[in-house]
Design a protein around this nucleic acid. Sequence first.
DNA 1: TTGTAGGCGTTATCAG
DNA 2: CTGATAACGCCTACAA
Lengths: 364, 364
Amino acid sequence: MARRATVYDVAERAGVSIATVSYAFRQPDRVRESTRERILAAAQDLGYVPNANARGLARGKTNALGLYSFDLMLDAPQGLSAGSRAAGAGDDVEVDLRAFPLYVDEIQRGFELECWHRDQTLLLSSGTGPETSRVTDLAGRVDGLAVFPGPLSDESLQFLSRRLPILVFSREPSDVPLFHLGVDNYAGMRSLVDHLVLVHHVRDIMFVGALDVPEYRQRFEGYVSGLAAHGIPAPGRPLDESDLGRADNLASLREAVADGALPRAVMCASDQLALAVLDLLEDKGVRVPQDVLVTGFDGILAGRLSAPTLTTVRQPMEAMGRFAAQVLVDNGGQRWTSPQSRSFPVRLVVRDSCGCGRAGTVGH
Amino acid sequence: MARRATVYDVAERAGVSIATVSYAFRQPDRVRESTRERILAAAQDLGYVPNANARGLARGKTNALGLYSFDLMLDAPQGLSAGSRAAGAGDDVEVDLRAFPLYVDEIQRGFELECWHRDQTLLLSSGTGPETSRVTDLAGRVDGLAVFPGPLSDESLQFLSRRLPILVFSREPSDVPLFHLGVDNYAGMRSLVDHLVLVHHVRDIMFVGALDVPEYRQRFEGYVSGLAAHGIPAPGRPLDESDLGRADNLASLREAVADGALPRAVMCASDQLALAVLDLLEDKGVRVPQDVLVTGFDGILAGRLSAPTLTTVRQPMEAMGRFAAQVLVDNGGQRWTSPQSRSFPVRLVVRDSCGCGRAGTVGH
DNA sequence: TTGTAGGCGTTATCAG
DNA sequence: CTGATAACGCCTACAA
């Protein structure tokens, strides 16, 4: 079977040089019309498709952006991967809310949209741990890279940032020349606390979430200072430091339930965590919001559909995804020389899990 | 700011030739340990990240697969794109079921999973119409390409198939050397018809869907032959030939409603169409399933959450996505010389919209 | 074990 | 308007 057609083949068939073939495609009006037509015809006959990688090599830019994320489901056993996310499980299985677009997905959607508008090819890749081979591969193919930090070490990102512009979602500013794109976790959490305290007159509030995730730590700090602002002594540590995907999932919380040591309200570091908490409480026969109030953070879709619906703080995820792609494109492959950052505002979304019944949105 | 580090830089710093640098990365044990360490150290110091595109050029394969799909929302106005898919709209807006993973998304998920397992980078791109520039660009970057045919012309696909292996989802076999991956639309539709006729004793059944979509046409044919098998005269044409995203959306159906000319049952060419039909009927005050039965096709998640839940035929979407990536990888960049095809089985999923109440799954 | 050199498919510079 | 020709960054026989 014939080799793939290249500029050489087209040039030969059209009786011109390879340079002219290239021009015919990239700068059409620099070529005489008759010549151009001859070339295009030859290309058509030969089934010529330009090799975009060679092009990238020659031009020094690929016109592509990468998005690297984490996906705990990747190496999960069949059933989990299929059932949890894509609803592949049997129809008799209860619908798992986590099958809906998650935080990452909503940002990704925005990223995709912007790539489309800016005519960038999108390369997707993901990993499950701190291993670095996949993200490095990605970095070697694109002009700019957006990353959900997760388990990736700072060193890894720093290393890659020497090669191309890198934007990280949701990470606290550092001295590494990355673009840090996040939200005001602190203010978001405080608005939630204010709501619980002022509207629901609750003062016995605990936090659930791991502190080794920078975002979560900021939220914890917002929680602490929020309580303080109301003269409430703040617990020095979360009630439970679980994070999704960990083995000891919500063990401490489970214990608190067993001991009848639940606070009046539980503020979770993320919506996904909050949904897990709702599941757990329901499972234990604890009623939300009657027995305990629960809040989340992020504003993912699933929180609108849970029972009860989830009071939370919403991040403008699609806008953030778009912004990320924009920044990367605008930077045209040039890495940053100093750390950049941008914070998006969040807004309080009051639903049922805090005891508000069918209330509307409260601006903030 | 310094240029990106290349093999040359690393070689110089380590005092070796570029070949040795390459070996150190690709065939480590072909290089003496001390040399290798020196090279790796130099690479580390310089922030060297291999250029995967150059690599692909040199090796003749990129280790990447492409997935091209359609996305009507891409060029939709802001609000639509955000609201309909990513739930970016205000919280007071009713949740749009179409915000959940669609047919395409569920297949994509499978494709992603398999890419991950086979260590392939995934390139994503999409378009809104028959324009060919984006898919061509994609084709110029990868070793294999999976495509949702949609508005792409046969000629376009045929052309691209001269360069690399191409797999199309859901398209009827042709004489073009593509891999056709689909499901047994015919049998699926017949099982639905059988259910309506034998279980619900309905004989006045109409079809809704465009016939210029090959998949839909096959489903229509299954519908016709299904009726015939029960001695029911089959209408020569659908009640409505709308397809999603068209201007005249469901105009004929709307008319039928106005004229009181609705049949006892409406079989839709796809779940998404069926959901639109449910919306329309509800809007007009027509009750489902009391006044009219409705069925879909595909088995997307949203059909489990609609009111009423949707009776349909489910395709093994994730499995199909995985299979697609497998086939493409296994073919190692070699295009097919003759048309290939593979059909996946479907299964009847009985829910409420056909009048079955809270029934379980009926195997088939 | 390591170096030399040619090639992968395009683009871009510089003549003509 | 068109043609040589040198990059682009890496891989890989083939030699040494």
